[in-house]
């Protein structure tokens, strides 16, 4: 018998599932926010017509893909290999993704901590990060969103926050 053992790496089904569900939810929320929030809509309007970006985990996923198709922003599922992706936001591991997506670590901090690798044209990547920040403010209660973004937008009107939140949640759940 050899003194060196070979050990196949284990699986992490629970963390993968959480991250997968969260990515699915965020994807649909971005699709919804593009309809409900003027700022998100404007960011997407400035991007090219077939613009596509992905967010997910290295080395083996899960992923989510968002794209502009015929002028509308669509959640395109979880398989980036089927699309030409302009911007790829890759988190270094499922565990790091879990930290970020369970709000133990904000996106800005995760970038600062080298957990998030951004690939693609810089102006596009910045637009994607701005969109993610706005969506996080809608989806999360202030106390958590305040951790997730650099500067919580105090100047938003109560109407924008509340109306946007209801609209985005409803559309996300219904998938419209």
């Amino acid at each position: 018998m050899s003194i060196v053992k070979d050990i196949p790496s284990a699986k992490k089904p629970l963390k993968r599932a959480y991250v997968g569900i969260f990515l699915w939810f965020t994807g649909r929320a971005i699709q919804a926010a593009a309809k409900v929030d003027k700022e998100v809509k404007k960011e997407f309007d400035n991007l090219p017509d077939d613009f596509t970006f992905s967010l997910g985990c290295l080395p083996n996923g899960p992923w989510m893909v968002i794209g502009k198709r015929n002028g509308a922003v669509k959640y395109l599922g979880g398989n980036p290999s089927q699309h030409k992706v302009h911007v790829r936001l890759a988190i270094k591991s499922v565990d790091a993704a879990f930290l970020i997506l369970s709000f133990q670590e904000s996106t800005a901090l995760a970038t600062a901590r080298n957990r998030l690798i951004t690939d693609g044209e810089v102006p596009y990547a910045l637009a994607v990060i701005r969109i993610l920040d706005i969506v996080e403010v809608y989806l999360l209660p202030k106390i958590i969103a305040g951790l997730a973004v650099k500067r919580y937008p105090k100047q938003w009107s109560a109407g924008r926050k509340l109306g946007g939140r209801i609209g985005i949640y409803a559309r996300t759940i219904l998938g419209i």
Binding site: V4, D6, S9, A10, K11, K12, K15, P59, N60, V94
Partner: peptide, 9 residues
Amino acid sequence: GDSGMTLGL
């Protein structure tokens, strides 16, 4: 975990 790699030990 989840990397699909096989490790020697």
